[in-house]
């Protein structure tokens, strides 16, 4: 059973919350929307995101619904190629088919961009694409998220948004040398795999979100303001553009779910309390 799919089937909102444009638009170089080409600099090498605009030749304009679902759920292209998990399909796999297809409908409603993809520039051994098959066996748990009957409807909705859609854990969880999420330290913060970002601990640990109330976190996901009056920056400002498109109820569900997590001391030693 699927946890809690979006009732409104609002593709634009899901598209924003899932942050698709954050990676697939080369905003640092004023690139065209969804034309790809944004460089993601990682310890594994540099990924150049593909064009996901609906152009039939350079984008995904020829993809069927089944192609799109297979890409998001299993990380496989229509031609059968494995995607690197820099594309967060380990999170998107938990989305409902309805929500995945709502995102596809939205993408197919925006202008096509005739921009060719650029090959990734990866280090050895990561450049060997066959390795992704092994990676998937180790780390990919394919399939939609089951609802937890012992938790509230709000918690379950939050779980769905955090894990499947907004994919918070992809940056805020440390990864091992193969790029797999260390599930025991989920949300404990990380030297994120992308662009040298330091993603802070977002568990309810006292040095992390312990002193934030549910309201604090819900309003932060709308306006980016922390309880101390600071404002989110960098990639998190992009994330907040997405979460601010969600309903107030959805932002609250995210906050309820995050505040219910097990507190874990921060991965990053320099972290100090941000909730004062």
């Amino acid at each position: 059973m699927i946890a809690t799919a979006t009732p409104a089937r609002d593709g634009a909102v899901l598209f924003a919350a899932a942050g698709c444009a954050n990676c697939h638009t080369d905003r640092p170089h004023h690139g065209a929307p969804l034309a790809g080409g944004r460089a993601l600099v990682t310890v594994f090498g540099t990924f150049f995101t593909p064009n996901i605009s609906p152009d039939p030749d350079f984008g995904i304009g020829r993809w069927s619904d089944g192609d799109f679902i297979r890409a998001l759920r299993r990380g496989i292209s229509p031609a059968g190629r494995d995607y690197y998990p820099s594309f967060p399909y380990p999170a998107f796999t938990e989305m409902s088919d309805d929500d995945i297809l709502a995102i596809k409908r939205y993408i197919f409603s925006v202008p096509a961009q005739r921009q060719p993809d650029r090959e990734h520039e990866l280090r050895f051994p990561y450049r060997i694409r066959a390795g992704i098959k092994v990676w998937k066996i180790l780390y990919l748990r394919e399939g939609t998220l089951d609802a937890d009957p012992d938790e509230s409807k709000e918690w379950n909705r939050g779980a769905y948004l955090v894990r499947a859609v907004v994919h918070c854990g992809e940056c805020h969880t440390p990864r091992d040398w193969l790029g797999g999420i260390e599930t025991a330290r989920r949300f404990a913060g990380a030297n994120a795999a992308v662009d040298g970002m330091k993603a802070p601990d977002i568990t309810p640990d006292p040095r992390a979100l312990g002193r934030w109330s549910v309201d604090d976190l819900a309003s932060y996901l709308d306006d980016g303001l922390t309880p101390s009056g600071d404002s989110a920056g960098g990639a998190m400002a992009e994330v907040i553009r997405g979460t601010s498109a969600l309903s107030a109820g959805d932002r609250r569900a995210i906050a309820v779910y995050m505040k219910a997590q097990t507190p874990i001391p921060p991965t990053l030693s320099h972290e100090v309390a941000k909730g004062d």
């Binding site: 330091k198 306006d223 980016g224 303001l225 404002s231 920056g233 960098g234 400002a237 992009e238 553009r241």
Partner: peptide, 22 residues
């Protein structure tokens, strides 16, 4: 009004121009 200020000024500037002190 606070949300507008936060998004159009604080967040918009921090997104591109605030790095880390280290």
């Amino acid at each position: 009004s606070m949300r507008s200020l936060a998004k159009n000024a604080c967040g918009a500037c921090h997104e591109n121009y605030r790095g880390r002190k280290d």
